[in-house]
Design a protein around this nucleic acid. Sequence first.
DNA 1: TTGTACGCGTTATCAT
DNA 2: ATGATAACGCGTACAA
Lengths: 340, 340
Amino acid sequence: MKRSKTVHPAGKVTLGMVAQASGVSPSTVSRILNGTAVVSQDKKDAVDRAIAELGFVPNPIARVLAGGRSLSVGVVTQSIDSPYYGVALRGIEEVLDTVGYVPLFASGHWNAKEEQRCIDTLRARRVDGLIVLTGRLSDESLRKLAKELPVVVTGRTMKAPGLYALNFNDFEGARLATHHLLTLGHRQIAFITGDPVHPDAQERLRGYRAALEAAGVRYQPSLVLPGLFHEDSGLMAVERLIDSRQPFTAIFAANDQMAFGANLALHRRGIRVPDDVSIVGFDDLAGAGHAIPPLTTIHQAGLELGRCAAQALMDLLADKKPTAQLPEPRLIIRSSTRAL
Amino acid sequence: MKRSKTVHPAGKVTLGMVAQASGVSPSTVSRILNGTAVVSQDKKDAVDRAIAELGFVPNPIARVLAGGRSLSVGVVTQSIDSPYYGVALRGIEEVLDTVGYVPLFASGHWNAKEEQRCIDTLRARRVDGLIVLTGRLSDESLRKLAKELPVVVTGRTMKAPGLYALNFNDFEGARLATHHLLTLGHRQIAFITGDPVHPDAQERLRGYRAALEAAGVRYQPSLVLPGLFHEDSGLMAVERLIDSRQPFTAIFAANDQMAFGANLALHRRGIRVPDDVSIVGFDDLAGAGHAIPPLTTIHQAGLELGRCAAQALMDLLADKKPTAQLPEPRLIIRSSTRAL
DNA sequence: TTGTACGCGTTATCAT
DNA sequence: ATGATAACGCGTACAA
């Protein structure tokens, strides 16, 4: 058996060469490649063979310039190294890969202007669709965008033609977390909020209050501390809380990073977790299970988020109605909480 | 004052239109855009004005098809959500952004075949250069690759035309870590290795042994536990160590993730850190400072790695000799180590 | 069902 | 210094 020639990695072999080698016209090759029209079986076989022989790989650049699909989708994330969105990117990559699509990532850094720039760059590269992971863009600009190309957005609830929104049930997650603490007998539960400009942060606060109310526990504003979703803000919040001499037996942090910070603040003051105070986080980051103590938290499947978003976008691109749904938040009980 | 027209995000305005509007030929516009040749000031002014008026944005797709630069560079990382390489990606993004380049990320999952696929995909998209973050590709294939386009590779030491290699001093980092423990009076220092197929892992083992030797402490194979660079392997290594009843007062883990796992294993057995045993990690991940206790570790600037790699590639692309150098490893003393 | 001819937006080459 | 022209590799009317 003769082996076929070495595949040229950069794709020096052109569609035209394939056409020539198989004795058909370039259009026919193109049609076979894209399934644009019916082609007789024998020509198709000849072309397939030529493609294999020559190691032909379509040039995506030429393809898109000629008006075809780029088989790429733009992903606007906030920070390429975000501990939470990172796994979502992996989920996206995973499903795109199975259908021959390629993700193009760009970071908006929680800044509407930058996000818009990312989108412009991505569109200039002719992505077929766009996934926007949360961010600060207005619903309005997203709506407009969706008129130009399919868009999947996470972290909000909205409806628009050409757009699919995927949102977590932050309210329910926070309710679950607080309810867990309540069940353990805690009554003085501090809450470290996220940056209030995030709708998520507001929803989580609502969930906290709802759980309190349902249990007949009075809501105490002095127990809610402003946070910014990062470790240091959680740490400082707890230091302030301790200094305020406001008694508390548990802390619910609006995300794991702040829970880690809170945990450290407690540790520094010699307060034991969970013996003296319980902590629950939110997100279930990769590190949560290996923290000391392992953190009880709300699992917010980032991986699922990515997968669902990608799947929904593929549906949109195929003119199918997306049906992907995020799983409901789940309480993961580990070792940072215990009965009073 | 009349405002200029709304910028068309997708770039419907073409170079040809700009040429027409400013009364010059397309070639002249192109020349001005790329600085390819000298153009008279008045024509340049006219063109610049037209560009601004029309909100013209060059189409990168057409640009590259026509044989120009794509102003994009491919980055093959191992996992898009790697806690360590993630920040390197940020570093890359950061410097590319300042010079108008765009990164295209692809994940090789520590698999030479997949890495090669990534490279092919990236090259098909006509990236101007390539950054390969460590990985399993052979030096040989990298060398060949570098003949086709500029390549920057991290995690190995090699020289080849068109290629620039950037490597950490893993040996010195490990030596530093071990030496720190030795200085604190520890003599029975366990070492959790990384996956031995990584050259890094071998270097770190060498550094550990060298420090021991320099201090006149006997190397005990029973104190070195195989690990796989992730938390669970660190955890299991320590469980095995404890069960072996081999006495030890300190642990040096070849990366932070394994150190976290080790820490958890100790915690589960009621062994206190650093009171009973000291731990030092390697990498200085984002979470290391907020671990309980905050982890003493070797700082291996991932951000710098990314920045240097990007800078070196930009140099290569500009036909300049890259000079970027990684900073030497630094010992970060936090709270997981203490004198015996 | 298949082929021809043209266009996508830009850059390189060759004139001038 | 500037312009005309021909690629770049593919998709798609349109014609056959």
